[in-house]
Design a protein around this nucleic acid. Structure first.
Length: 374
DNA sequence: AAGAGAAGCAACCGCGCACCG
DNA sequence: TCGGTGCGCGGTTGCTTCTCT
């Protein structure tokens, strides 16, 4: 296909828009509104094709456009959304008011891709960069680790090998104004499932490169002042501890937590071992979101945990982004322990076997849509 | 100060899809 | 059902500005 059909009809201008052309287009759209783009040039007295007019309006003239550099929050949101949506720039732009798909695309290609690479993250997969030789080695070890896991789990677990948490499966848990925790569709932010206020989700962080995202709904990014008590806990269960010994793993934002700083949830890059004050590697980290105003690292009962203040945007990445130690020959164990403090009940759950690859239309009506009890 | 390369950005291109007659 | 048309999206280009030497 050549140039768009409307452009053949007459000799049309191309290239940069002059201020006069901008003024004509702006006046026309503000007066008559957006209608049929193909008729806009004629009506507005422009020697442009309708497509060019549309683009100029959307990317430059639209009055609700936000100008200037991207904020850190926007930058992190783009990265996170790109993780979920890929190069669907228009869908990403829909989550950033005042930003255009073109702007975000340019920002991604010119800046964010490089930043992620510098942090050792593959911008297309959002996984740690590994060399081709390491990749080959990983494939070999994955095969052997699968066998090892089957042997190890034969007496204690019924998890099937093919039930693996989708590495790109994010989950947004939001504290909405009803003082509930909700699981949101990461693509649409539509509230879907509601959990009891004090429900604890204990997440195995054994799935390398998984992203477990906790995020305030950007559209209603306010912490409920009544948000009370411990609400969400992520941790690795003791039964899995030994499997981590000697392995190398990291939490991107653990350094900030260790430094007792405010929880920086946007930092993919500061990879650091999690350790308690004695320098012993943390064997059982917890991320607790509660009303506490400070972030801190604690250690008790042989387990350390990081306690973070609620913020507008909390990425579970910081709760767990273990770097897989291939020498351990262990595959991820996608098991969640889910506890209801109020009813004092606990159950083990695993992700549903069939996550939709494309969850842009993924609606979750209940927890059972996400998990099944085991 | 000048030139080269990098970075940023606006705009175009090509394709797919939806709609309509 | 099919072809024409318009729209929207993602990829790409090429111009401008910035930075470095």
């Amino acid at each position: 296909m050549g140039r768009h059909s409307c452009c053949y009809k007459q000799k049309l201008r191309k290239g940069l828009w002059s201020p006069e052309e901008d003024e004509k287009l702006f006046n026309h759209i503000t007066k008559f509104g957006i209608g049929c783009w193909s008729s806009v040039p004629k009506q507005a007295g422009l020697q442009r094709c309708g497509k060019s007019c549309r683009l100029r309006w959307i990317n430059y003239l639209r009055p609700d456009l936000k100008r200037g550099t991207f904020s850190q929050q926007e930058e992190d949101l783009i990265i996170n959304l790109h993780h979920v949506l890929g190069n669907r720039w228009s869908q990403i732009a829909a989550k950033l008011p005042g930003r255009t798909d073109n702007e975000i695309k340019n920002f991604w290609n010119s800046s964010l891709k490089k930043k992620l690479k510098q942090r050792g993250i593959d911008p297309s997969t959002h996984k740690p960069l590994i060399s081709s030789s390491e990749e080959e080695e990983k494939i070999k070890l994955d095969e052997s680790s699968s066998r090892a896991k089957r042997l190890r789990n034969s007496s204690s677990s019924s998890i099937d090998d093919d039930v693996v948490l989708h590495h790109h499966q994010p989950m947004f848990l939001n504290n909405n104004n009803n003082n509930n925790i909700t699981i949101n569709n990461p693509c649409t932010y539509m509230n879907t499932a509601t959990l009891a206020n004090d429900l604890i989700i204990s997440k195995s962080i054994f799935d390398p490169f998984s992203v477990f995202e906790l995020q305030q709904n950007s559209a209603t990014a306010h912490i409920d002042p009544n948000f009370s008590s411990t609400s969400v806990v992520l941790h690795r269960t003791n039964s899995e501890q030994t499997q981590f010994e000697g392995s190398s793993w990291a939490f991107p934002s653990a350094a900030a937590a260790n430094a007792n700083a405010n929880f920086s949830v946007y930092d993919y890059g500061n990879v650091a071992e999690v350790s308690d004050n004695s320098g012993v590697m943390d064997k059982n980290p917890l991320l607790i979101l509660n009303e506490t105003g400070e972030s801190s690292m604690n250690s008790s009962n042989g387990s350390s945990f990081a306690e973070f203040a609620s913020s507008d945007h909390i990425m579970g990445n910081s709760a767990g982004f273990p770097i897989w130690d291939y020498s351990m020959n262990i595959k991820p164990e996608p098991v969640f322990q889910c506890s209801d403090q109020i009813n004092d009940t606990t159950m083990m759950i695993k992700p549903q076997q069939h996550y939709p690859e494309d969850y842009s239309n993924f609606g979750m009506n209940s927890l059972s849509d996400l998990f099944e009890e085991i």
